[in-house]
Design a protein around this nucleic acid. Sequence first.
DNA 1: CTGTTAGCGCATTCAT
DNA 2: ATGAATGCGCTAACAG
Lengths: 348, 348
Amino acid sequence: MSTIKEVAELAGVSIGTVSHVIGGAVRVSEPLRRKVLAAIRTLDYHPNHIARSLKTRKTLTLGMVVPDMTIPFFPQVIRSAETAAHARGYSVIAVNSDDSPARQKEVLSLLRSQRVEGILLVIASGHGSQAQIPKLIESGIPVVCLDRLPDGIEVDSVCVEDSAAAEMGVSHLVELGHRKIAILTGPLTLRNERERLRGYKLALEKAGIAVTESLVWEAKLDQEDVSAMCREHLTHSAKRPSALFCTNGVTGLGALRGMAACGLSTPEDIAFVTFDEITAEDIFRPAITSVVQPAYEIGFRAAEILIERIQAGPTQGPRIEARLPATLKVRESSTGATAVRVLRSGRR
Amino acid sequence: MSTIKEVAELAGVSIGTVSHVIGGAVRVSEPLRRKVLAAIRTLDYHPNHIARSLKTRKTLTLGMVVPDMTIPFFPQVIRSAETAAHARGYSVIAVNSDDSPARQKEVLSLLRSQRVEGILLVIASGHGSQAQIPKLIESGIPVVCLDRLPDGIEVDSVCVEDSAAAEMGVSHLVELGHRKIAILTGPLTLRNERERLRGYKLALEKAGIAVTESLVWEAKLDQEDVSAMCREHLTHSAKRPSALFCTNGVTGLGALRGMAACGLSTPEDIAFVTFDEITAEDIFRPAITSVVQPAYEIGFRAAEILIERIQAGPTQGPRIEARLPATLKVRESSTGATAVRVLRSGRR
DNA sequence: CTGTTAGCGCATTCAT
DNA sequence: ATGAATGCGCTAACAG
């Protein structure tokens, strides 16, 4: 790996001049410029980003923490954040927290050591994953939370309109005539899960249906746990709901497995609606009615907001809370019909 | 962000001493040690990885380039590579190349500037994506290629046993009685696609079936292109094959869409086998018979090999070419039966 | 327009 | 066992 010094020697100029042609900010005469460029090419020189960062105190790097990038929603978000960042000259380092607060703490520490200029954070679902956010912000690292929002912490955020989106999904079931509708959520320590639950209750209330606590099922974000919970609740046909609403893709898939284990199918035995698309719904049966989040836009907006924060400096501008509308894709699992219908959520 | 100097001042020691307690290599007396640790905590000090790297010339970072992390296979590989790397004290920076050689060149350059110590590379499918590998290696950055292998380039690699895996999938169709079997591949500029095609031909030859070139369909790694190609080949029932084998998840899903567009379904009209699982096959119908790659192990092994290379120094050890066995999951799309059967590929 | 130089934060000799 | 000094590669004044 050659250095700027070697380039300077080969080109017969000073390292300052080389730096100038690389930076582009200071004018350099054409002949020298060409010589420098030639030297760079023959040496296959790549500026040492490490040294540059040390000097400029800018890494042009964003950190991003997600619970598990094998969950299909997250790669979409990462990719769009990367796209937005790249357009502004930033790179993104994406890491998994395994949905563990301890591991999240580790990776955040690592990201700080790497001197990322800002962090895109999808918090882990366990307890204590929020405590680290204020320290980050105090230390001058802007944070934007995505998808999962922390509680009572002043921080920029972007996510779907959780409550409205859930309400839309549940109202759809209500309109179909269902009155005994269960909801299967992830940990209610997560604010967005609580918001989605709130949307569920709102939908029922508007329809004049009483909320039955025994139809609110809270599971861990774990296939096995979700599946077991479903089996438990669904075995007795008397207590069985006529419809089930799941608040995310993981619980949605787990619920389908649990239902299958009970010999139940959708929509015949139970009408089914879930957050997130969990397969290629145009190809596979049953096609699942889904509340679809604008994953691409969530990541893109989050990166935009973060970079604006970084470039604005330690200014205490107003907190930004972007809430994006979801789309309801009505399919077979709720209506029994094969045609697809698309609805858009909007603020009331 | 506090510095080592501030820690030293607060603790009332020299920066050398602070560095020693952080590094752990040099012994420091217990009283001073405690004072330093306390200072670190109260200042919320995070060692500047940038400065450290500049000094030590080690970044403890691996770069990883994949075509598109929204393709489900890749997040698995990234995650397992990250796991292996982390266990050895390394971080992984994963970036997308958009399957474009130009973009791949950019991100590789960026990774070099970041001074990653090694690179895990899944090459882009376009022309010229291989040319950059020798330059990397010459410049002292070890490279391990995964999944997609370059041609005629000496480089460590790990992937599935492409030919044997494809042969297993096609032989399965042969055993089911099919004699007119089409294969839908990605770009044959990719060696692994050619290998999979070779496995297809091998399976046919062993069964005494002549290879018909009109049944070899080469598509771009793009849903639309694949789908269009299928529609074109499948409209005339006379020329239609009785079975179709797809060499990867993208072409597999595209083919299913193309078939649906022609009003064809599997397994009724066409028996179907594909590389990679493309949905939750236990839940959705039709359940697709798949040649499953050991994604986790591929990423893990690749990271292991890369780190060994890094730590061995510029030693020219023998090239490593890990070839991992695939698994055939026999499902409804080929047999029509709902039961699942699992076969393991092995070297002949 | 070009060259010289002073650090950025840290690990690491080398003295003490 | 501790501290002072050096330099990693680079950018950004500044001087010429």
